[in-house]
C-alpha cells in the first residue's frame, strides 16, 4: 500500500503539472479527491490495515492530500491571474474616444451675481425679502419721501399703469412694506433683490433692470455702520484689498446720503476709460434712512435709526465679468450665456 501511495503521488503530481486550465484542475480534483477519487479510495481502504500501520498511513495520505490541495490552490491562483490578464488584453479600449458627457445648463450671469450678493449679505445677517414689481404710487414714491410734484419723479422716468399704479422704479418701495410687516420688531435687516423699470432705452439703459436694496433699522444704527457693512460687502465681492470711497450725494429717502465708489477694477485706480480717468467707479447709492421714511414704515425716528443702500446688478455684473454691452444680458444669445 505504501508503494501504491508513492506511485499515486508521483502520477498525481505529474498530472497536476499538465493542468493548464481551471477545467483541467477541476477534473484533477475529481479524479483524485472526488467521492470516488483515487486518494479517497485509499483512505477508505485503510480499514484493512493493522492498528499500528493505520495512523502512519493516515498521516501520509493526509500529507499527500494537503500537498495536492495547496498545489491546486496555487495553480488555481496562477491560472486565474492568467485569465484576468487575458481578459485585460482582450478588453483594451481607445480611451481617447470622447466620454459621454452629461449636459448641464447654467445660471444667467445677472442672477449668478445676485446669488453671490445674497450669500454675502446673508452671511452678514441679512434676510432676503421681495416685493411687488407693479407698485402703488404711495409705496414707490410717497413713502420714499417723494411727494407728488417732487422734481425727482418726472413722468418720463416711470412706466405708469394708472395714475396711482406704476412699475416700480427702484426696489425701495419694499423697504416700507418690510418695515410695516416687521413693526415693532427690531432689528430690521433685509436685502431686497429684484426687477425694476424705468423709461430709458439706449446703450447704457435698459427699461428693465435689477437692483439689490439693503435696509437696516435698529436702535443706534450709525452712519459709520453703513460704511462698515458696505466695506465688508465690497471686500467679499471684489477682493480683500478693495477700497471704497464715500461721497456726499442726495436721495430724497436718505439723509445724510452717500454715493459709494470702489477703486477701479479695470485699472486698479490709475485711471482709465472705464473710470473716466478718476480711478474710482461709482457702484452704489446709500444713506441714513430719512426720518419721514422711518415714520411711514411705522417706526419712531426718535427711537431708532437706520441705513439703506441700493445697487445696480447689471453694473456690478459688467464690472465683474468685463461685459461691455448692457444689452447682451437681455438678448439671451446662448453663445453669450454659455460663457458663464
Amino acid at each position: 500500500m505504501r508503494e501504491e501511495l508513492i506511485e499515486l503521488k508521483q502520477s498525481a503530481l505529474s498530472h497536476l503539472d499538465r493542468c493548464d486550465s481551471l477545467e483541467a484542475l477541476n477534473e484533477f480534483r475529481l479524479l483524485y479527491m472526488g467521492k470516488k477519487g483515487k486518494l479517497t479510495l485509499i483512505l477508505r481502504n485503510m480499514g484493512q490495515l493493522s492498528a499500528e500501520e493505520r495512523p502512519v498511513m493516515g498521516q501520509q495520505v493526509n500529507e499527500i492530500r494537503d500537498e495536492m490541495e495547496s498545489k491546486i490552490s496555487q495553480f488555481t491562483a496562477a491560472l486565474k491571474a492568467k485569465e484576468i490578464e487575458k481578459q485585460i488584453a482582450a478588453e483594451q479600449i481607445d480611451i481617447s474616444l470622447p466620454g459621454r458627457q452629461a449636459s448641464v445648463g447654467g445660471r444667467h450671469p445677472l442672477y449668478a451675481v445676485m446669488d453671490e450678493m445674497e450669500e454675502i449679505f446673508m452671511g452678514l445677517g441679512f434676510s432676503v425679502a421681495e416685493g411687488y414689481e407693479v407698485e402703488t404710487d404711495y409705496y414707490n414714491f410717497e413713502a420714499m419721501n417723494l411727494p407728488k410734484d417732487h422734481p425727482a419723479r418726472d413722468m418720463q422716468d416711470s412706466f405708469y399703469i394708472t395714475n396711482e399704479i406704476l412699475l416700480r422704479t427702484h426696489t425701495s418701495p419694499t423697504q416700507t412694506r418690510v418695515m410695516e410687516m416687521m413693526h415693532p420688531q427690531l432689528p430690521v435687516k433685509v436685502i431686497i433683490p429684484g426687477k425694476v423699470y424705468r423709461r430709458d432705452d439706449d446703450a447704457t439703459h435698459s427699461p428693465m433692470f435689477h437692483q439689490v436694496e439693503g435696509l437696516v433699522v435698529d436702535k443706534h444704527i450709525r452712519f459709520s455702520d453703513l460704511k462698515g457693512i458696505l466695506l465688508e460687502f465690497v471686500k467679499k465681492f471684489y477682493g480683500e484689498d478693495q477700497k471704497i470711497r464715500l461721497r456726499p450725494s442726495y436721495f430724497p429717502f436718505t439723509e445724510p446720503s452717500a454715493e459709494v465708489d470702489i477703486c477701479c477694477v479695470m485699472c486698479g485706480g490709475k485711471g482709465c476709460r472705464t473710470c473716466k480717468g478718476t480711478g474710482w467707479l461709482e457702484v452704489l447709492g446709500s444713506g441714513m434712512v430719512h426720518p419721514r421714511v422711518l415714520e411711514m414704515g411705522g417706526y419712531d425716528p426718535s427711537e431708532v435709526t437706520g441705513f439703506a443702500f441700493g445697487m445696480g446688478v447689471e453694473r456690478l455684473a459688467m464690472l465683474k465679468y468685463g461685459v461691455d454691452d448692457l444689452r447682451l444680458f437681455f438678448e439671451n444669445d446662448i453663445r453669450f450665456l454659455r460663457q458663464f
Binding site: G125, I221, R222, S224, K227, G228, I229
Partner: peptide
C-alpha cells in the same frame, strides 16, 4: 468716518 459694525443683536440671514 470710521468703518464700524452695527452693535445690535446678531441675526441669522434667511430666504
Amino acid at each position: 468716518l470710521e468703518a464700524t459694525t452695527p452693535a445690535g443683536k446678531t441675526t441669522q440671514g434667511s430666504r
